[in-house]
Design a protein around this nucleic acid. Structure first.
Lengths: 194, 194
DNA sequence: GTCTATACCTTGATAGAC
DNA sequence: GTCTATCAAGGTATAGAC
């Protein structure tokens, strides 16, 4: 009824839907799956997000903003690189533990062809922003002697981000050990003593 | 009508369904999507695969057998390691080019919670077999001086397989350059001159 | 083995009352 | 903003004829 109530429901819908998207993929949940745990009806969800396509686009935007916030605080640009890498590992582990086994990009890559052009672009921008941040972490780390690796930092960033995304999916199938093994291997590949 | 016709339709269903699974995920295609391009009706598909759950399980089995065949011939155990690594890269590229953007494990990891216990186990065995083969390639390569890397070969195998799986999804969103960058990075990390 | 026909369910979405 | 009621469409699956 008040502004708070409005934003509150909207935010709860986003939170629930994001969880469902990461757990089951875009075609694995319905408006009913969102509304039921919130104690509302599916028509109420349609009020806030008229179509599922718009809802998914909002979920990408939400994840993107969360990343910007994360890189601005917890994973601040410009600081020492090693804690930022470890922060990324911790973030990933925490996501998996709180019921978000795969990331948004991983989930949506499966449904990619169904997405509208604008949604595809939003997803691509989200990925590019993540890569920009992580490329910088790697460059800084190498300059400051925290990391050792050969070759182009961008390639290395792509390969490590891909590795983490793939590892989350491995972990879902084969257990969380796959995640820890992967983190350990990334450290080894960067010449970090563990 | 004849034995050949029977096996033929069954195999065509498997081929079509496998393609659809890799393109759209488990909830992204229907029996109609399978039957239509084959010029049959959806009831005919149900004759060969009574339920979708059983169909998916057969698709995992199919992929698993294809891998065994691949590792027995093209990627033979025991030979030099470098060509086997390059064979894996070529295989991955070819899959992406022929409309199989993500791998079966990548697609199904999103729908993992929906799967029956037996199907989950089949998927896990498929993954373990792949890892066993690739671990051996890496070990052999290191012993023979073809590859250089630190740490446990199993961890390295997990991390590289995860990297390739993740890279396929990146490539779908951001273009095939992500795949090539990743392969290049894997070579660099293994101390291979490119 | 494949067909037609159909039962039954869930889904995304809309209209209109409150 | 949320509800009830309803819709058309599409999904899985089955029965029985051929």
């Amino acid at each position: 009824m008040t502004m708070n109530a409005i934003s509150n429901t909207r935010q709860q819908i986003i939170d629930t839907a994001l969880q469902l998207l990461m757990q089951r993929g875009m075609n694995g949940f319905s408006y009913r799956d969102i509304s039921e745990p919130l104690g509302i009806k599916n028509a109420a969800v349609h009020y806030h997000f008229p179509s599922k396509a718009k809802l998914v686009k909002s979920l990408i935007r939400e994840s993107h903003q969360a990343l910007r916030k994360g890189t601005a605080e917890f994973m601040a640009y410009g600081g020492p690189a090693r804690p930022q890498l470890e922060g990324l590992f911790e973030f990933t582990l925490k996501q998996c533990e709180c019921g978000r086994p795969v990331c948004v990009a991983g989930a949506l890559s499966v449904d990619f062809e169904e997405l509208s052009k604008g949604t595809k672009e939003a997803l691509n921008r989200f990925m590019m922003d993540t890569l920009d941040w992580f490329t910088r972490v790697l460059e800084t780390g190498r300059e400051q002697g925290e990391f050792q690796f050969n070759g182009n930092a961008r390639n290395k960033a792509i390969s490590i981000m891909a590795m983490i995304q793939g590892a989350r999916q491995f972990a879902r199938i084969h257990g969380h050990k796959a995640l820890e093994c992967t983190f350990e291997q990334i450290r080894t590949d960067l010449g970090i003593e563990s």
